Amino acid sequence: MQLPPSQTASSLLRSSRPVHRFSSTCDAIDQLVTPQSYINGHLSAHGSALEAGLSEGAVLELVGPPGIGKTRTTLGFALAERFRDEGGEVLIVDAEGSLVPSLIKQTAEAYAAHHEYEAGLVNEVLEGIRYRRIDSAWTLVAFFQTLESWLMEHPKVKLVIVDSLSSHLRPTLDTSTRTLIADTVIVTTQMSLKLFGPDHRPSKWSRDAEALLVPQIAERWIPSDVDAYRVVLYYAEDGERLGRLLSSPTPTQATDAAFTMDLLGPCDFPPANSQDESASP
């Protein structure tokens, strides 16, 4: 009989700590990527409820039409991580030209003002956000191929954000891009119109064909050995912003979400009593 290897006391303590989770700053969206059994009945060592959000090592794909708030949502994840105590560094890859440094700085300043942080903290937060602009397919593929070694050289980077993955790779991703999955990753992808016939199969144009929005990149780009979440953000008929969980490794706290958007990014709707107070003279 072979005894199991021994472990140090410090490693046992680290393994008993709550999993580090990344928040979008919007509880409704966080619940879409939080396991159903994670918070219910679970308390931290200090007696407080464990935090919700995307776990370390997971992948989140945000799918949706232009203007729904995918870029702002990724920025919410980035700033929540940077402003938290012991937050890690974030790598932002701007493949579409929407997540520009000026927007990151403007949102970080609004975030600090909203939470009443010292203005000087903004520079410290921005120092921990690394930025890359990708403007072609070959540059994007080259980036993926070198990402694993780059992350080994930058161990403080805990979150990778790619906006938008489908900008230069419309059909699907090949195996050379799968080194992307080296840490916690959040990507955005666009949607495109596709025609379907009465039998619900892809169809060419005809009077009976129906045009539907579908993700531009097939889900198989995500390796099967990682915890991956796919969330679509979309508009309701009345213009309300909604989110729906399309796939996840385990049941989550919620499968649907309603949210709004402000200068800080995605946020929950204020309580009804707060709306009533703001409306009163």
Rank of each mutant, 00 (worst) to 15 (best):
L3H: 05
P4N: 05
A9T: 12
S15Y: 01
V19N: 00
S23P: 02
S23K: 03
S24T: 13
T25A: 13
D30V: 08
Q31R: 11
V33D: 10
T34C: 00
P35E: 06
N40A: 13
S44H: 10
S44N: 13
A45T: 15
H46Q: 14
G53Q: 02
G53R: 08
S55D: 11
S55H: 09
S55N: 01
G57H: 14
A58K: 14
L60E: 03
E61W: 09
G67M: 02
G69S: 01
T74W: 08
T74P: 00
T74V: 10
L75E: 07
F77H: 04
A78L: 02
I92W: 05
D94E: 08
D94F: 14
G97Y: 00
L103P: 05
Q106D: 08
Q106C: 03
T107Y: 09
E109Y: 05
A113C: 07
H114W: 12
H115W: 10
E116G: 04
L121W: 13
I129K: 15
Y131W: 15
R132E: 12
R132Y: 15
D135E: 15
S136V: 11
F144S: 12
L147W: 11
E148Q: 15
W150D: 12
P155F: 02
L159T: 08
S164W: 05
S164E: 04
S164K: 05
L165W: 04
H168C: 07
R170Q: 13
P171D: 15
L173D: 04
D174K: 09
D174G: 13
L180G: 03
A182N: 12
A182F: 10
D183C: 06
T184S: 02
T188V: 10
Q190W: 03
L195P: 00
G197R: 09
D199L: 06
D199V: 10
P202S: 07
S203V: 04
S203D: 09
L212K: 12
V214N: 14
E219W: 04
R220F: 07
R220D: 01
P223R: 07
P223E: 02
R230V: 09
R230G: 01
L233I: 00
E237W: 04
E237G: 06
E237L: 05
E237S: 11
G239S: 10
A254H: 06
D256F: 03
D256M: 06
T260P: 00
M261Y: 08
M261K: 09
D262R: 05
P270N: 06
N273H: 01
N273F: 03
E277T: 11
P281M: 10
